[in-house]
Computed example of a mutant assay.
Amino acid sequence: MRNRELIKLLEQYPDDAEVLVRGYESGWETLAGIEERTLAHRVESEPDWIGRWFDPQHLPAEIAQESSGSWMQPIEPATIDRTETVITLHGSHAL
């Protein structure tokens, strides 16, 4: 979704409507911030239970399978199709 699409959707709701995001483990929490980040995008053929966007600073460790016992599956360099500056929304428990 692009910024202009989000704005168009949000304009359909009351100005005082609470905006929530998924909680860290479960439930919902109040939107705590918006950040601009440069992230790497994985091609769509990857498993769909893992997010498609990653911080490029963490990719070398994940590609080398050195992510310190992380549950994440290693990322093959060939699966990254682009890097893009994006807007991220997060709650107070953002990673």
Rank of each mutant, 00 (worst) to 15 (best):
M1V: 08
M1P: 11
R2K: 12
N3D: 11
R4K: 06
R4I: 04
E5V: 01
K8S: 14
L9C: 05
L10P: 01
E11N: 14
E11T: 08
E11R: 15
Q12C: 14
Q12G: 15
Q12L: 15
Y13M: 05
Y13R: 05
Y13C: 07
P14M: 03
D15F: 08
D15L: 09
D16K: 01
D16G: 07
D16L: 06
A17N: 08
A17M: 13
E18G: 07
E18S: 14
E18Q: 06
E18W: 10
V19K: 06
V19C: 02
V21K: 03
V21L: 05
V21P: 04
R22G: 10
R22A: 15
G23P: 02
Y24W: 11
Y24G: 11
S26F: 07
G27I: 00
W28T: 06
W28A: 11
W28P: 02
E29I: 04
E29H: 02
A32Y: 11
A32F: 08
G33V: 06
G33N: 07
G33R: 01
G33E: 03
E35P: 02
E36A: 13
E36V: 12
T38V: 07
L39Y: 05
A40N: 01
R42W: 00
R42I: 02
R42S: 06
V43E: 13
V43T: 14
E44S: 14
S45A: 11
P47M: 02
P47T: 06
D48F: 09
D48Y: 08
W49I: 06
W49Y: 13
W49N: 12
I50C: 05
W53V: 05
W53F: 11
W53N: 00
D55N: 13
P56T: 03
Q57A: 15
Q57E: 14
H58W: 00
H58P: 00
L59F: 01
L59C: 04
L59Y: 00
L59T: 00
P60I: 01
I63Q: 12
I63T: 05
I63K: 04
Q65C: 09
E66V: 03
E66F: 03
E66M: 04
E66K: 04
S67W: 02
S67A: 15
G69P: 08
G69E: 05
S70W: 01
M72W: 10
M72D: 12
Q73P: 13
Q73K: 15
P74H: 07
P74G: 11
I75L: 10
I75N: 02
E76K: 14
E76T: 09
P77L: 02
P77H: 06
P77K: 05
A78L: 10
A78H: 12
A78G: 13
A78S: 15
T79F: 03
T79L: 03
T79P: 06
I80R: 02
I80C: 02
I80A: 04
I80N: 01
I80K: 00
I80T: 00
D81Y: 08
D81P: 09
R82I: 01
R82H: 14
R82F: 06
R82T: 11
R82D: 03
T83N: 07
E84A: 12
T85G: 04
T85L: 04
V86E: 00
V86N: 05
I87C: 09
T88A: 12
T88I: 15
L89G: 09
L89W: 13
H90Y: 11
G91C: 09
S92A: 14
S92N: 09
H93A: 15
A94Y: 12
A94I: 09
A94C: 12
